[in-house]
């Protein structure tokens, strides 16, 4: 059974072909602003290397973010059209969960916590907190966008709650210019230094989500997590005008 995975929500473009529970071939690229030109040719090339035709695919897995809005829409749009055309299920997975699964092999042994953080500007980060549970991950703090300091104290508390008997691994995509904003933990890994594992992370994350079929595929959307600023301003203007029941 062949499964195609793809994610364009971060600066790492990840694609992979899974056959018989194994990554048969994968390709990643982290060329800035290169996802739009690279995505389709990379998918073509991994299918070709895996001697697989699109019609042999049984499922498509796509990372839906959170992350870069323009970036995440590319893989989501392409995965939706491919799944519709092939009439196969589409599995939308969290990019954060995929990052967390991709980081599991970095941990030698013992109990662990995983904190994937994606930089969301203005001192904020998209993130989630997971803990290792058997072969999988358990969600301790669900995906959200928070001040970076909030993520930092949340993870610190989680470690203290476990009497410091747990290893905390943070995986992040903070740009160099924002290096001073990176929370300070013992194990901090930049996404790019673990990018080769992201396709496998996407596949593992897909095993926890329900496949979308036919009509449901139309409804698959990126997880933006933040409203468009113009919409926020419009609502605030409306609230200012009508908030007290009187026109201001």
């Amino acid at each position: 059974m062949a499964i195609l995975v793809m994610d364009t929500a971060t600066e790492v473009l990840a694609t992979g072909l899974i056959v018989e529970e194994n990554i048969l071939v994968s390709a990643v690229s982290s060329t800035p602003r290169g996802h739009s030109t690279a995505l389709a040719p990379l998918l073509q090339s991994i299918l070709q290397s895996g001697r697989t035709t699109p019609h042999q695919l049984k499922k498509i897995v796509v990372g839906v973010g959170p992350g870069s809005y323009t970036g995440v829409r590319m893989a989501v749009s392409m995965a939706k059209s491919m799944a519709m055309a092939l009439e196969i299920p589409l599995l939308p997975v969290s990019t954060l969960t995929a990052l967390a699964y991709a980081a599991v092999p970095l941990i030698d042994k013992g109990p662990f916590l995983l904190l994937p953080l994606l930089y969301a500007r203005r001192g904020r980060a998209f993130g989630a907190l997971y803990q290792g549970a058997g072969d999988g991950l358990e969600v301790l703090a669900p995906e959200s966008v928070q001040p970076i300091s909030e993520w930092s104290s949340l993870a610190t508390r989680a470690v203290q709650d476990r009497q410091n008997q747990v290893k905390l691994v943070m995986i992040h995509d903070f740009p160099d210019a924002q290096a001073d904003e990176i929370p300070q933990f013992a194990t901090s890994i930049h996404l790019k230094s673990n990018q080769e594992r992201l396709p496998r992370g996407l596949w593992l994350a897909s095993q926890t989500v329900r496949p979308m079929m036919r009509e449901e595929i139309h409804e698959v959307l990126p997880n933006y997590m933040l409203e468009v600023e113009a919409q926020v301003r419009l609502r605030e203007r409306g609230a200012a005008r009508f908030g007290n029941g009187l026109e201001s």
């Binding site: 995505l39 998918l43 699109p54 829409r73 749009s77 392409m78 059209s81």
Partner: peptide, 12 residues
């Protein structure tokens, strides 16, 4: 969005 979707249809 349109370009990525169109490439998906063309690819398959």
């Amino acid at each position: 969005v349109g370009l990525s979707a169109a490439k998906g249809y063309a690819l398959v």
